[in-house]
Design a protein around this nucleic acid. Structure first.
Length: 503
DNA sequence: CCATAATTGTA
DNA sequence: ACAATTATG
């Protein structure tokens, strides 16, 4: 038991595994000694279990942060097995800490849990401070004239842009060396379980990713230096992949949206090269805006990951064809661009956004599988799996969401491939067995003459599958099926009981 | 109430 | 050219 008079603060880490621009850590460091805890609460009812790929990331990200904090002998304790309130209370008692700080999370389960923990701790005379994090604009500050959530993205983002700029990032906290405050109740069992879960990963994530705050910052810097200027023109090009690739870092909070926001704005307004086209800056910020938008939507509509936002889509009663679903999952649909995307997902845990739209449209419209099945698969495979973004994007593709893609829009996997992977680079990278196929057929191998196939060493149905559905027929069936949703229905009511943080 | 506009397409 | 519906001011 520490009997020192220096106040000790517990910092509850969640999706904010970083030092730079971490308000809770910043303020706790100013106060005095601190300890940090991460609660690995996998068996919480009401909470989604962490996906397979994300478990791997989480373990490495925690390891990296723990390593950083150890420079000042600040413990990062990993706990599990009890409810969050009990764990926090026990830690406060055993370290004789009188205050707890955390950065806010906005997923409905987290937000509600945290509000009630805050209340209970305050009743026990614990000082509780929570800070805005994860979102550039608090969800309750963006509303329509009537006071409801804004559903159309353009209106949403324009409103955000009309507000004062998001705050500047905080500096790295000035920690003091904390000799004598070593972790005294760490549970190696939890840590080992996490390590084991992440080692059992069948994917090859370590070949593609390096979790950790330092990597996040260097990714951001190289994006600004090399790709930001071309973002408007080339962000969709599958060969170049000039996106920022920050999504997993943003998800786990190894970098904050405030840091990203101000860094890209600063780069584009400074006289130093590289020059950044204003259209590129605008579009990149708009992408950040979509992240913001989905987070707000989930906050207001907690059912978003489960139920169709437009209830007329619930009546479709689609039957899952398990064979087709599996072909899609394994990247064996016979449509090269779809398969390339799905294979990249299974190996590298990521897929460019363009591909996410194509494969989602394919699963929903060509294979008539409910979007929830796709959402589930992405959840387990994506290294940046984020509840709000995943749910929104799948509902978008299905046409059942707010601000969604119209039901009659069926992505054509051949023309999409020809448009965004014109030279077949992406397909050849992820489906090497098609590598020798000439460009003219790379997105439609079934149309290649037999001599061409033979020369390329391809036997359709053997080395690469034939299409599992015919595009034209599948398209017509999708239009007829989804046409049934044309019926007016009540939109869901937003969650009005939600407690709201006063500014 | 009405006018307007709505991320990323297809044939 | 076109598809259909809805949110928003």
């Amino acid at each position: 038991m520490s009997s020192s008079k220096i106040p000790c603060t517990l910092v509850w880490l969640r999706q904010d595994l970083r030092l730079i621009d971490n308000p809770a850590l910043f303020h706790a460091a100013k106060r005095g000694q601190l300890i940090t805890v991460y609660i690995f609460d996998e068996d919480c009812s009401g909470k989604r279990r962490t996906g397979q790929a994300c478990l791997w990331w989480l373990y490495h990200s925690l390891k990296s942060l723990r390593n950083q904090l150890s420079q000042w002998n600040i413990p990062l304790i990993v706990k599990s097995g009890k409810d969050a309130f009990t764990i926090l209370k026990e830690l406060l008692d055993s370290y004789n800490a009188d205050a707890i700080y955390w950065n806010r999370c906005y997923e409905p389960f987290e937000y509600n849990r945290d509000c009630s923990i805050e209340e209970k701790l305050k009743m026990e005379n614990v000082t509780v401070e929570t800070y805005q994090d994860r979102v550039l604009f608090e969800p309750w500050t963006i509303k329509t004239a009537k006071g409801g959530p804004v559903q159309i993205y353009v209106h949403f983002w324009n409103q955000c842009l009309s507000l004062p700029q998001p705050r500047k990032p905080y500096d790295k906290p000035k920690f003091k060396n904390q000799t004598g405050c070593q972790s005294k109740c760490d549970e190696p069992a939890v840590w080992q379980r996490l390590a084991k879960l992440s080692q059992d990963m069948p994917m090859k994530l370590q070949d593609f990713w390096h979790p950790g705050e330092e990597q996040a910052i260097s990714k951001l810097k190289s994006f600004i230096k090399n790709s930001l200027n071309a973002y408007a023109e080339k962000s969709q090009c599958l060969r170049l992949n000039t996106t920022s690739n920050l999504s997993p870092y943003l998800h786990f909070g190894e970098i904050s949206p405030f840091t990203v926001w101000h860094s890209v704005r600063h780069a584009s307004s400074s006289a130093e090269p590289p020059a950044v086209k204003s259209e590129s800056l605008k579009q990149y910020l708009r992408s950040l805006g979509w992240r913001e938008y989905t987070c707000h939507l989930l906050f207001h509509y907690p059912d978003l990951p489960q139920k169709c936002f437009r209830s007329s889509f619930e009546q479709l009663k689609l039957q899952v064809d398990p064979v087709k679903l599996q072909s899609w999952q394994q990247g064996n649909t016979g449509y090269p661009v779809v398969d390339a995307g799905m294979r990249q997902l299974s190996v590298a845990g990521i897929m460019p956004n363009r591909l996410r739209m194509i494969v989602a449209s394919f699963l929903i419209k060509h294979l008539l599988v409910p979007w929830q099945k796709g959402e589930e698969w992405f959840w387990s495979k994506l290294i940046d799996a984020d509840l709000a973004q995943n749910a929104f994007n799948w509902q978008w593709a299905a046409g059942s969401g707010p601000n969604a893609c119209p039901y009659f829009r069926v992505f054509n996997p051949i023309t999409q491939g020809e448009k965004f992977d014109a030279d077949g680079y992406y397909v050849r990278k992820w489906i090497p067995e098609l590598a020798a196929l000439p460009n003219a057929y790379i997105h439609k191998p079934w149309e290649a003459p037999s001599t061409v196939l033979k020369k390329a060493n391809i036997v359709l149905g053997k080395t690469y599958p034939r299409p599992i559905v015919q595009h034209k027929a599948a398209r017509e069936l999708a239009l007829a099926t989804f046409g049934q949703t044309k019926r007016k229905q009540e939109p869901p009511t937003s969650n009005s009981n939600k407690r709201v943080k006063e500014e």
